[in-house]
């Protein structure tokens, strides 16, 4: 039986989390979205530490770059250098349009870099295609294989 895909969203902007949740809720697929608002929490969540001991294992991490405490770049570096986490696809989802951020993110092992669109129709289209691509079309390692 197919389980509901798990998404972890790491973003300090509640408006973007709400909007993404909203769009995913209205879409055809069923997704479960967890959200944390800084990089340090993201690492605890992924390692199921502390209050995240019972946290679900995400199938996709949607990561903002500019975050308090621990930046998205640090999270990315940590995730991709940890054999236990490295196989989880990480989509960078940010307002930054600096080409250096794009290059650095891929160099650190990001699976995809997406810029947050400035208007609703584009935002909706992007979130829907991101979810359907990564959690629909793409073959991902089984959880027990990670």
């Amino acid at each position: 039986m197919k389980t509901t895909p798990e998404i972890l969203m790491v973003d300090d902007n509640p408006a973007d989390i709400d909007l993404t949740r909203e769009i995913l809720a209205q879409s055809n697929g069923h997704y479960h979205v967890s959200a944390v608002k800084d990089g340090a929490e993201a690492i605890s969540f992924l390692r199921q530490q502390g209050k995240y001991a019972e946290a679900p294992v995400p199938d996709l991490v949607v990561l903002d770059l500019n975050l308090p405490r621990k930046s998205g770049r640090e999270v990315l570096a940590e995730v991709k250098s940890d054999p236990k986490l490295a196989k989880t696809p990480v989509v960078v989802f940010t307002t930054s349009q600096a080409s250096t951020d794009v290059v650095r993110s891929y160099a650190l092992g990001a699976n995809c870099y997406l810029r947050k669109p400035g208007n609703l129709p584009d935002f909706v289209a992007l979130v829907q295609s991101m979810a359907s691509f990564w959690l629909g079309f793409a073959s991902l390692p089984q959880k027990e294989q990670r």
């Binding site: 902007n13 408006a15 909007l19 909203e22 947050k116 400035g118 208007n119 609703l120 129709p121």
Partner: peptide, 11 residues
């Protein structure tokens, strides 16, 4: 902030 205003007024 503008992105917030634009997307949410559109919503």
């Amino acid at each position: 902030p503008l992105r917030m205003v634009a997307t949410y007024t559109q919503l």
